[in-house]
């Protein structure tokens, strides 16, 4: 059963000027999907549409076979979690406090954190390997550390689907690889969709790629089938050649001089 089904989606911030145009794709359990495309191609808007932050003009989004508009906010928040590109660290919060905010869709009024809440938070902290940070103030963390804390907060929602907007853009290459490996491990529990600027990183770590241009879908499928000289020319107007690794599962582009 697909976790996410998107059919003929048209969405944007104004009904007259759609940003995402007629996009159809689905995401199965355990997939790690990368959304790629040039600046302004609608990657972030597509991601934000799935979590209900952007109005749907036409078409449909289904989360585990429920239409997005039929899910109430709390139900949606228990199924889909979103990590934005930038998040303000909260002054005076420890890492644990921040991760605990991920339990908001489960809280009961007038009650303290339940055992479930604590278990979920501890689990998310262990998954992101940030045990050593839990008592630190979030304002004191490095960019790479804070990014992992932000993802742990989303994981504490125990979502079926985890959405990340350019999770590696602000990280140095060592952290980029580290984080992508972590994300790849996470998908044994859930599906992940992330936007990327770096096509090679996306091709290396994702199980599926979606290539957008001007809000339209150019190609979708295995990285091997999406990262081709023709597709990259159509999306970015640059000429590249492709190197394939030995098992022909992965490919990366190299700029032509």
């Amino acid at each position: 059963m697909p976790v996410l089904e998107i059919e003929n989606l048209v969405s944007g911030y104004s009904p007259h000027k759609p940003i995402v145009k007629d996009i159809t794709f689905s995401v199965d359990d355990g997939e790690f999907v990368g959304i790629v495309g040039p600046n302004g191609s609608g990657k972030t808007t597509l991601l934000r549409s799935i979590v209900g932050l952007v109005a749907i003009n036409s078409g449909s989004i289904k989360i585990s076979e429920h239409k997005l508009e039929h899910l109430d906010k709390r139900e949606l928040a228990r199924r889909v979690a979103f990590v934005p590109q930038m998040m303000e660290p909260i002054n005076g919060f420890t890492v644990r406090d921040l991760v605990m905010l991920g339990r908001t869709p489960y809280f009961e009024r007038f009650s303290f954190d339940s055992n479930d809440d604590r278990d979920a938070v501890n689990w998310a902290i262990a998954e992101l390997k940030i045990d050593n940070l839990i008592e630190r103030q979030v304002t004191e963390l490095s960019g790479g550390e804070f990014q992992r804390v932000a993802i742990a907060r989303a994981l504490a929602q125990e979502p079926r689907l985890l959405l990340l907007d350019e999770p590696i853009s602000h990280l140095d290459i060592r952290y980029q690889v580290k984080l992508c490996k972590l994300l790849r491990q996470l998908r044994s529990h859930r599906s992940i969709i992330a936007t990327f600027h770096d096509l090679n990183m996306a091709a290396r770590f994702c199980s599926k790629l979606i290539l957008l241009k001007n809000g339209e879908l150019i190609a979708a499928g295995k990285p091997f089938d999406v990262v081709t000289p023709e597709n990259i020319w159509r999306a970015y107007r640059i000429k590249v050649t492709i190197k394939k690794n030995s098992d022909k599962q992965r490919s990366k582009y190299v700029l032509l001089p």
Binding site: K73, L76, A77, P84, L101, P105, Q157
Partner: peptide, 8 residues
């Protein structure tokens, strides 16, 4: 926005 994605 983040509060909205947390079900608020």
């Amino acid at each position: 926005e983040m509060a909205a994605t947390l079900g608020v």
